[in-house]
Design a protein around this nucleic acid. Structure first.
Lengths: 146, 146
DNA sequence: GTATTTGCAAATCATTTGCATAAAC
DNA sequence: GTTTATGCAAATGATTTGCAAATAC
């Protein structure tokens, strides 16, 4: 995605996890490293396979545990996709998401400023974050549609 | 939600379905009528129960079929919520969605204009729609959190 | 009359759970 | 040493499927 993408160092990854107040485990490290190195918005299943291809010691339950812990700590973003598995994303720079109607893939769209809702629209809700979801056909699916 | 909410007429509901190029069946009618009368962003299961409470002749599979047909025809909007059942929404006026981190409920936020992405951000993707998702705690969950 | 839609019950997919063991701090 | 995380395998929840019978147009 980013042509000058530098893989983060071991220390950077470890700090990224610990800064969220999380214990550092090999499984969490593997998940976080994968998400930082492969900005592809993988599913939990894809992460499970990728991580265990390198070093098979993470169970599926632990992948889910790690992902949830990282999401809760604000280190990872989760994107729900209708009728499909959720996608996960290292929370590095702010950006928007494009979801393909056809293949379900999630892609990054460079961030651009969004207006904030007027306070009266929120009532006494507590706003944590807002995100823009774009939908349509990704490049691949556009090109294979006649 | 809307204090001057008028329940739509039978004819209006039928037209709303047929205008999408769909055959009119009692089951689709029941689903659409429920969504138009109860703007609560129900799950498929809730729709199944509500619809069958009135007249028990819709199977779960048919509820899903109807919902998907209506979504595809642009009559209904589907909102995916991480780790929970999807919510459905009659597609009447444009609006944004607020999803509660705690209870998962989806609520409408009055529409306000969003900037469109620059064409170069989309590449050769084909954009169909964009929506803003707001997240945080709904009024109820804000008030019950100490 | 033909094309679609429905109901049923079983199957599938994604995710979570419970609990004993292991590892982090 | 105490607290938290892991692995396993089974359970749950949401949604989809296959196919014969029923219905819309």
């Amino acid at each position: 995605m980013n042509p000058t993408h530098q893989p983060p160092s071991r220390e950077a990854i470890e700090q990224f996890i610990e800064a969220g107040g999380l214990r550092l485990t090999p499984q969490r490290y593997a998940v976080m490293a994968f998400l930082m190195e492969e900005p592809v918005h993988a599913t939990a299943e894809e992460i499970f396979e990728a991580v265990n291809r390198v070093d098979p010691r993470s169970s599926r339950a632990t992948i889910y545990n790690s992902l949830h812990a990282l999401v809760k700590a604000g280190r990872v973003r989760e994107v729900a996709v209708e009728g499909r598995a959720a996608r996960f994303d290292a929370k590095l720079d702010p950006h928007h998401h494009f979801i393909c109607d056809q293949c379900g893939n999630v892609e990054d769209i460079p961030w651009y400023h969004l207006p904030q809702p007027e306070p009266h629209m929120l009532g006494s809700r507590r706003l944590r974050e807002s995100e823009l979801i774009l939908r349509g056909l990704c490049t691949r699916c556009t090109e294979s549609t006649y």
